[in-house]
Write a protein that binds this DNA or RNA. Sequence first.
DNA 1: ATTTTTGTTAAGAATTATTCTAATGAAGAG
DNA 2: CTCTTCATTAGAATAATTCTTAACAAAAAT
Lengths: 133, 133
Amino acid sequence: MKRYRKIGFKLTPQRLAILDCLEGNTSHPSAEDIYRRLKKKFPTMSFATVYNTLDALTRKGEILEITIDPERKRYDPNTQPHHHLICNKCKKIVDVTINFKVTIPERFRRSFEILGNHIEFYGLCRECKKKGG
Amino acid sequence: MKRYRKIGFKLTPQRLAILDCLEGNTSHPSAEDIYRRLKKKFPTMSFATVYNTLDALTRKGEILEITIDPERKRYDPNTQPHHHLICNKCKKIVDVTINFKVTIPERFRRSFEILGNHIEFYGLCRECKKKGG
DNA sequence: ATTTTTGTTAAGAATTATTCTAATGAAGAG
DNA sequence: CTCTTCATTAGAATAATTCTTAACAAAAAT
């Protein structure tokens, strides 16, 4: 619960609400998703606070900013290296916590220090497939 | 050269210029990069034309819209399935035209029809590493 | 060779996502 | 209590992209 303290920034009610909203959330919400969900509880909550907090958390490595949806940034509280499955139709994003071995040849490593990788699988989720692609 | 005809849309001078600018271009330019480069030759060129054309080409499958840079869309004339290497620092994107075998377990395939995948390798390019990360 | 249709362009307005700014406020240090 | 620091808010500003509209040009139909 209050393992949040170790993040090392001031825990305000707004920030706690954002953290709670993110905790275990596998829906990869955008800033707006979070804002919309939170303003019920905090009608005075500002967009800037959501952006500031998400930015602070990203810089502290507590969450990941994911760049899959061309329309907006999305955030993922799961900071373990993992991959994603994206529905081309509804843009739903599903976590794939499997470790794939993809090794890039030496010739690339000579000009680039590789620090990690991320695989996006794309396709059609069952719901969208039913409705016809 | 005029294999462009088969694309099946009207080939105007502006569109030809955009196509030429893209042809064999491995720099993954953004709409603005293209616009800036083209308005020298076509001072009357409008941003809207660049966006419309990129959009039309994307829908026709002639180019790919790539969603790696959180700030803007970038375009890639290489429509063969391939992967990318991104420098965390300067955001340079390099093509990796290697076929990796990444097979996702059956349990994912049951709820998702997988149509493809894209691997992003991220790290530091030589130049940025020299300057110190 | 006109007319009609269809699709393209340019300019700028509009929209959307995000960042910045300035004023205010709360919490902790002294 | 007063000072300092950092967070919050509202709203302005910015940046990327999309939309709208009018003028236009090529192709198709007459």
